[in-house]
Every structure is written in structure tokens, then in C-alpha cells.
Design a protein around this nucleic acid. Sequence first.
DNA 1: CGTGGCATGTAAACGGTTACATGATTTA
DNA 2: TAAATCATGTAACCGTTTACATGCCACG
Lengths: 202, 202
Amino acid sequence: MQNTRTAYVILGMLSIKSNLSGYEIHKAIEDNFGSFWGESYGQIYPSLKRLATEGLIEPCKPASAPKKRRQEYLLTDAGRVCLREWLALPFQNDPPRNEFLLKLFFGREAANGVPIMHVRELQERNRRMLATLEGIESMARGRELQNPHRPYWMLTLGLGIALTRAALDWGESALAELAFIEAAAAENPQPADTSTNPEPGL
Amino acid sequence: MQNTRTAYVILGMLSIKSNLSGYEIHKAIEDNFGSFWGESYGQIYPSLKRLATEGLIEPCKPASAPKKRRQEYLLTDAGRVCLREWLALPFQNDPPRNEFLLKLFFGREAANGVPIMHVRELQERNRRMLATLEGIESMARGRELQNPHRPYWMLTLGLGIALTRAALDWGESALAELAFIEAAAAENPQPADTSTNPEPGL
DNA sequence: CGTGGCATGTAAACGGTTACATGATTTA
DNA sequence: TAAATCATGTAACCGTTTACATGCCACG
């Protein structure tokens, strides 16, 4: 069956709401998951075709808007079973790749001011992220209290907010620390010296 | 030149320490970056060859251990320039993919107890992670105070620790919340109903 | 009438992992 | 001498992004 995670995201979206098109699924992922998942059309459309041939989803006529030229899908019983099986499997950690941390790690090698610049940029991105997440949170406050998905959605939102806040806090102290480091380096300008450096590893 | 990030990690490692082999670079990445970066041999060895033909690194004889059958490299001036240029470029956020959050988001669709299981598993992984990072931190305490890389390495370590702690805190409250949710769901067992669910999006 | 959003798709390239093959050296 | 670790490499595969192509429909 070789089901990719793209396929499961699609099944998941269709389990929440039926009669979605590829375009709408893409949009729904962006709106609901944007901060922790992404899919491109190049993945979505072929996956929809494959899921349909496997009988996990079913193409159907546009229900509400019959004018639009578009293909909608709904989840089959087999698809729901497949989704549930996948949900029960242990989650996998994706191989870690954080380019910000990488550049900060090599900060000593960078030109003066570069690490500070990167941390400032990180702060900006995280402030935007926090604003987005808190916006969603405040919009959700008191609404849809009966929606059975709501508690789970609020939990994911909560982790996003907690991590972003922690990163912002760290950023503040990092900026102070970096100002100190670079001031010291400016007083004592020693060029990078490869040969005499100690082992990598603290 | 089409330089991948793998190439820059290699340049970065060689800027910290010369006369590293592909094997040692792999190990150094794992030891120093394990929590936020990874490279496979299938990337490293071809990259070393390419970087050498481009003159950014230079193959050299094993310095300290001439017995070993292995190829070591050192960074050229051109390589250092190339590294510095890349370091000054804005960092890119990798496309977000967090399978844990995805499965939690779809938690309502999962069998009973599954979301709690995932959060418990997350807590375990994060506890191990925190132990590792704090182990490094305590090993580093008071050591290599003159190492010019140290402040940057400590900053990266600090962010890792801060994020892991934040995730652990969130996990505790999430477990309580999930116990509550699933207790309520057990009292009031309503099957998933696709057709009448509201729009996705809180 | 034009623009922007809606909508579907494909081909090529890319970055990366996995699995495999091979063999030397060290240590128990 | 057996096992672990050191060490180098390649081919196939995989998931994904990007760029491109196409065209509809609604709204100003």
C-alpha cells in the first residue's frame, strides 16, 4: 500500500469534513496546521488519485456548489479504518534540521554581528508566529464548545504557543549574552585559528 | 556551485577542527548537533568529493594516526570564505512537519487512549532529551572557558534545554486535560459523525 | 474587461535516506 | 578469534518541492 504521511493527512482532513477538494484540503492544512505541517499540490493531487483507486476515499459530486468545476472526495469506511490504524501507531520524529541553530553553533566563524542578526530575525518570526497562534486562541475562546475535536485542537495550539514563548524568552537572554560576547571579541580581535583549536565537543 | 546544507555543515566542522575524515565528521555532527541536525554517509562522502574538486576543502594525509586507512580533509581559504558567506545569509525555516502534533490534532478520530499514549511517549522522549542536554551542560560547566566557540555552543544548548522543558511542562497539563476529555467521552460515547461536523478551523 | 482567487494537474529535479558491499583495526 | 568499531563508498529509491501549464469563475 506504501501510504505516505500525505495520504494520512488527507484521510484525517476528510474525517473532519467531507466533500473537500484537493484545493480545499491544501487550504485546510495551511489554516489549521500551518505551524506544524505542510503539503504541496504536487503531493496532494496524486495522493487523492491513489487513495481513490485504493478505495480509501471516494470521488463525489460537488454537494453545495454544483457550479464549480472541481472534484470532491469523501472518506470511505476502509479509509476511516486505515486512518485509525495509523493514528494508533507510534509517531516518528522527523530527522532534526534547524538551520538557525546550525548557524548559531558556527557563530564564532561568522562575521561580526551576524549571530545577533540571526537571533533578531528569529525573534521577529517567533513574534509573528505567537501573534498568529494567540489570534486563533482568542478567536476560539468560548466558541464551538460542543465541537468534539475542539479539545484536541486546543492542545496542539497550546504546545505551539508554549514552545514559541519559550523560544522568545530564550531569544531575549541570547541577545544580551551575544552583545556581551561580541563586545569582548571586539576588544580582543583574534582571527580564527584552525590548527590550535581543541576537540569539537564541549 | 549548487551547495547543499550538507556541504556547509562539513565546512563548518572543518572550520572548528582540521584533519577530519568523513567518518569523524559524521560522528562530530551526531555528538555536537544530534538534537538539531543530522547527516548520513550517503550525503557526506559524495559531498566531500565535490567540495574537494571545488577547492573548498583539501584532502590531506592522516596527521596524528598515520596507521589508519582513511582520508582526512582540511578547510581551504576559499572554503572559509564560502562558509562565512553562507553564515551571513538569512536562515531558512524548514517546512514544518511534526507527526506528533498531527496525530494529536486528529485525536478525536483515534481509538480510546491513543492520544494519551502519544503524549506519554512524547514525555519519555523529551525526558531522555533533557537528560542528554543537561548532561552536556553539566560536563561543560567550568570547562574550556577560553574556547572561543564555547559561548555559541552554550547558547544552542540553552535553546534546546528551554524548548524541551517547555514541551515537558505542556505535556504534564496535556495529560491532565486528556484524562478529563477521555473520561467525558467514555460517559458520553458518541460515534464520529462526518456529515454534521462544522467547518474545520476553530 | 481585467485581475485575483479558485481549481487541477504534471514533469523534472532535488535532497536525502536506506541498504548494501567491503574491508581494516582494535579490543576482549 | 570473535566482536565491535572504524572506515569508505555506491545505487536505488523515496518523498517532496518547484516550475510550469491550463483554464474557470466572480467581482470590481
